[in-house]
Each structure stands twice: as C-alpha cells, then as structure tokens.
C-alpha cells in the first residue's frame, strides 16, 4: 500500500477538523433548528469512499452523513450555509439529515433507517439499464440492517447483478443500544457466502487498510469481477446520537477543539492511526498547515 500524499492527509484531517468546528458551533447553540449528527471516528471511511469515487459514481448516505459530505464537497462554507437555513445553489436548504450535493456524486441522504438502500439500488438499476459502468455506493449502519429493506435490497441487487457497494458502518450502536442489547449477532461473511455476494471486512480506524480495501472494491466493480459487494466496517463513533446528551461518555459537549484534532480518551481513533502510519513529525507538519482554521 502506497503512503498517503500530503494532500490526502490534509483532506483526511479536514474531515475531523471541520467536525470540530461544527461541534463548537453546536455547543454555542448556532444551529438551534438543525440536529446535526456528527461522525467523529468515521473519517477513514468517508475519506476512502471519496478517494475511490469516479466522476460518474454515486453515493447515497444516511442521516449521519457529515463526514462524507465534508470529504466530497471540500468547501465547508457550502455545507454551513445549509445549516444556517440558506439554500446556496440547491433548490432549498437541506438541513443536516438530508444533506446531499449532487454535483459531487451524492445523490441522496435519508433520515429514514434503511430507506436509502432501495433508492441506491434503483440508481444502480438505472445505470445498468443505461449500460454505464458506474458504481453506486450506499452507506448504512448496524441498526439499519435490521430493517426489512436491507434484506430486500440485498436480494434485489444480487438478482439483478447491480454494481452496488453496500457499506455497513458497524459502530455497535443503534441510538443507545448495543448489538448485544437488541438482537442476535449476524455473520455477514456467511450471509454473503450463501448469496454469492462478495464480502469485505474493514477495520475502519486504519486509514491505509481502509483505503486499500476500497481500491480493491472499485477495481472489482469496474472490471466486472464482482457486482454487489458488501463491506462491513468496524468503527467507533466518538459522539452521541445527535446534539448534547449530558452525563453520557460520548456527550459531544465533552469534545473540545481546544484539545486539538484528537478526541481525548479515544483508543482506536483513525487520526491517531494516521499519525502512527505517517509518523509524528510529518503528521504535525501537515496539521500545522491547516490548523489555522481552529
């Protein structure tokens, strides 16, 4: 796996840094009418998906879409204007849970659990009918996969051999319940094997590994060696469901930009891993170039 360029490292850090900025604004009460679901800990996935997406590829997101939007859009002010109730160049202000910028390939973000899976399959179906080779990426979670639409989409997508990449962000949480607290475990390796669907397991805290897997996925989709691919990424989300939750370990009010880019007390933070992967000196030098935003 080739090392990341400085620009790539910057993009990755900006996903984290801009979430810090948002969190500070949330703590100040800047967005009273917009419950923004932060995604501290999701940065490696958002970065990797964005890196491998081609010009015509499509991404469909969930309510916790902020890391992907920051990664794809680049211009953070463009995102902020929607939280401030301005539409910018879109037909209407999108708020947070439906935030999706079509011009960068994000066609849909849904606040309804599992709802985006079927829509993504429809886009992939249309691309198949149009005989394009474009890939459609759809993000879901370990809670949404309990919805019937997850299984229906899996069956439909495989039956039609759609170029659909389903990314499960497995953070072992649905609102405040862990998997163990709410359901039986599911072995997706076995599920996928039974349906002849390609399965990939990802450690979502490891930047280079995550990027490597997504490069493989894109290659398999483009070459046609795989159609539907299910990627299960194990991650930790370092903030609570949405907004402040006093008394919780993951209360985002306990996260402060004054502590720098990292989040205190985290164990498998993608940013920690990035620093280990590229070295402390290089990390700090790159960080200094963008830290003025703090």
């Amino acid at each position: 796996m080739a090392a990341l360029s400085d620009d790539q490292c910057k993009r990755l850090m900006e996903i984290r840094l801009n979430q810090h900025r948002l969190n500070e604004m949330l703590k100040r009460g800047n967005f009273k009418h917009f419950p923004i679901h932060l995604a501290f800990g999701h940065e490696a996935l958002a970065f990797a998906v964005s890196e491998v997406m081609g010009q015509e590829d499509v991404l469909c997101l969930t309510h916790r879409n902020i890391a992907y939007n920051i990664s794809r859009v680049g211009d953070f002010e463009r995102i902020l204007c929607h939280f401030a109730g301005n539409s910018g160049d879109s037909p209407a202000p999108m708020g947070s849970m439906n935030l999706a910028f079509r011009d960068v390939g994000i066609y849909y973000s849904s606040s309804i659990l599992g709802n985006n899976l079927a829509v993504a399959a429809g886009i992939a179906m249309n691309r198949k009918n149009s005989k394009t080779g474009d890939a459609v990426f759809v993000v879901t979670g370990d809670g949404a996969l309990e919805e019937g639409v997850f299984w229906e989409t899996l069956i439909f997508a495989k039956s039609q051999n759609l170029k659909l990449v389903i990314l499960i962000e497995n953070n072992n949480n649905s609102m405040s319940s862990s998997i163990e607290q709410r359901r039986c475990p599911i072995d997706f390796r076995k599920i996928c094997s039974s349906m002849d669907i390609v399965y990939k397991s990802i450690d979502g805290s490891k930047i280079l590994d995550t990027l490597g897997v997504f490069k493989e996925i894109k290659k398999e989709i483009v070459s046609g060696t795989s159609s539907v691919i299910l990627a299960e990424a194990y991650i930790e989300t370092y903030c609570n469901h949405a907004g402040a939750t006093p008394g919780w370990d993951t209360d985002s009010r306990n996260i402060s930009i004054s502590d720098g880019i990292f989040i205190n007390g985290t164990k498998v933070d993608p940013l920690h891993n990035l620093r280990e992967e590229i070295g402390v000196t290089r990390f700090d030098n790159i960080y200094k170039q963008i830290a003025y935003k703090i």
């Binding site: 066609y107 079927a118 829509v119 429809g122 886009i123 179906m125």
Partner: peptide, 9 residues
Amino acid sequence: GIGFGIMID
C-alpha cells in the same frame, strides 16, 4: 425505493 432511485437518476 427502486422506482424513486431510477427517477432521481
């Protein structure tokens, strides 16, 4: 959902 996906596209 597929119908709406096709429509969005």
